[in-house]
């Protein structure tokens, strides 16, 4: 496995359709390995689709995508074991499964067929739970946790894969403010460990209190990509979110 490639993710003229509808248009991006990247954009901008296409869940219709320098074939994804953290609302909260078991699922891919978890896997699961400060709740059923705690467990599951690349889809959405802040603090810690982190959020406030190396302003296509100080200017934000900065919509009525 080669994680020394300078770019974790590279898009080149990448398009993505859902049926007849174009979701992503002419995406060109090079995300350096080890960077912490925020994808911002309004609802329906294609943030989730961008994350899912990196995760291999949504195929592109045109153009190319490379993960650590290679096209994301099933074999390559199997070798990489990307740490994908889906939106919390998609998780089955009634499923009879403990916190520990959820995180152990992260070892399924790396283990491969016919193998049962060994000492190393249990150690990794405990380590991942420790990292997200959830080890003390490891025997709880997942459904009995708060939203913030569930999100931490999903992050721990992604960590248990030992992936160098973490993809987080709206990790703070639906959480209360302290939980949101603690999730972003956790992201900082993980970034400090040298992982590449790509986080989608529709919450502009998040990028104010959290440091990203790069911001992708997305609205079906990349409006801007660069360090926050270059990208976060009112003109770009207005274009991305299709609002003016005073918060009024560009609907022509201006009332």
């Amino acid at each position: 496995m080669n994680h020394n490639h300078p770019y974790a993710v590279e898009f080149e003229s990448f398009f993505c359709n859902y049926g007849q509808r174009e979701i992503l248009r002419d995406i060109n991006l090079q995300i350096p390995h080890g960077s912490c990247v925020g994808i911002i954009g309004p609802n329906g901008a294609g943030k989730s689709t961008l994350i899912k296409s990196i995760a291999g869940l949504v195929p592109g219709s045109k153009g190319s995508l490379k993960i650590f320098g290679k096209a994301p074939t099933r074999e390559w994804r199997k070798a990489l074991q990307l740490g994908y953290v889906p939106q919390l609302k998609s998780m089955d909260k009634d499923f009879p499964i403990s916190v520990y078991e959820v995180v152990m699922l992260g070892r399924t891919g790396p283990l491969g067929w016919f193998k049962t978890p060994g000492k190393k896997d249990h150690h990794l699961v405990e380590q991942s739970l420790e990292k997200v400060q959830m080890l003390h709740l490891k025997d709880r059923p997942i459904g009995q946790l708060s939203g913030g705690q569930q999100q931490r467990v999903l992050i721990a599951r992604a960590l248990a894969t030992k992936s160098p690349l973490l993809l987080l889809d709206e990790p703070a959405t639906g959480l209360d403010i302290p939980s949101q802040e603690s999730i972003y603090r956790l992201i900082d810690v993980l970034h400090g460990d040298g992982k590449t982190i790509i986080t989608a959020t529709h919450d502009l406030a998040a990028i104010e209190y959290h440091h990203f190396d790069f911001i992708i302003c997305l609205n079906q296509t990349v409006i801007a990509f660069g360090p926050p100080e270059e990208v976060l200017i009112s003109q770009v934000i207005e274009e991305t979110f299709m609002v003016n900065i005073e918060g009024r919509f560009f609907n022509g009525t201006n009332n």
Partner: peptide
């Protein structure tokens, strides 16, 4: 034989797919 794979699939088919299942 495929307990952990079916468990993963049953809990979260999308995540299971990302894991290469």
């Amino acid at each position: 034989l495929f307990y952990k794979e079916f468990l993963y699939y049953a809990f979260d088919p999308e995540m299971a797919e990302v894991a290469g299942l």
